[in-house]
Simulated assay, not measured.
Amino acid sequence: MALNKRGSRPIVVDGNRYCWLVRRKPTYSQGLTWSPLSFAVERADLAGCATLVVRLASPRPDNWMNAVAPPVLPSLVASAIRQGLERGWQPERPGSPFMLDLGR
């Protein structure tokens, strides 16, 4: 699964280049705050490799219920990348998306 380059944001973590993306519009359940915010990360220099999908505890900032939600900061993305790597995400290998649940 490759990220759409349009709208993705670059980040460098421990010398490696990544790009990350929050979906442009909330899904129906995210809009109603039934499911939390998630974002995807992949290595910027390796096409077709495993994507890290990070699920947070907070709702999307653009939810329809006006629930308070913190923004997704680059420091949070960098921390999620490091945790994903520690838990077994191998961004240089092709494969299924690696799910990282930070909502617990």
Rank of each mutant, 00 (worst) to 15 (best):
V68F: 09
R55I: 14
N63G: 12
A80E: 02
D45V: 10
Y28V: 14
R43W: 08
Q90H: 10
G31D: 06
R93V: 13
D45W: 02
R6G: 15
R87T: 07
R82K: 15
P94E: 13
L32G: 14
R93K: 13
V68T: 11
V12Y: 06
A47C: 06
A57F: 07
W20P: 09
G88P: 01
C19R: 00
L3C: 11
S35D: 03
W89M: 08
A67W: 01
P36E: 04
I11P: 02
Q30P: 02
R55F: 09
G84V: 04
Y18N: 08
A78E: 10
L85I: 13
W64A: 15
M65T: 04
G103L: 04
P71K: 09
R9S: 11
T51H: 01
L100E: 06
G95D: 04
Q90G: 09
G95T: 06
Y18A: 13
L32M: 12
A69T: 03
R60Y: 05
P59K: 01
L56P: 02
P97F: 10
I11H: 04
P94K: 02
Q90P: 00
N4P: 03
I11M: 00
D62F: 08
R23E: 15
S8K: 00
L56Q: 13
R87F: 12
G84R: 00
V54T: 14
A2T: 03
S75H: 11
K25T: 02
W64E: 13
L85F: 04
F98W: 15
R17Q: 01
R17V: 06
V68H: 13
M99T: 05
V54S: 10
M65Q: 12
E92A: 14
S8R: 00
A67E: 15
P70N: 15
L85D: 07
K5M: 09
M1F: 13
Q30A: 11
T33A: 10
E42Q: 14
D62Y: 05
G31I: 15
L73N: 14
L100S: 08
P97D: 09
V54K: 11
M65S: 11
V77N: 05
W34N: 11
S29I: 02
N63E: 05
E86I: 01
D14C: 05
W34D: 12
R24S: 12
T51N: 00
R93P: 05
S75T: 12
N63F: 09
A47V: 06
S79I: 00
G31W: 09
L37I: 00
L52T: 14
V53M: 10
D14K: 00
N63P: 05
F39W: 04
P61Y: 07
V77S: 03
W20K: 00
R60P: 01
G15K: 03
R104N: 10
W64R: 11
V12T: 12
V53W: 05
C19Q: 12
V41K: 02
W20S: 07
R17P: 02
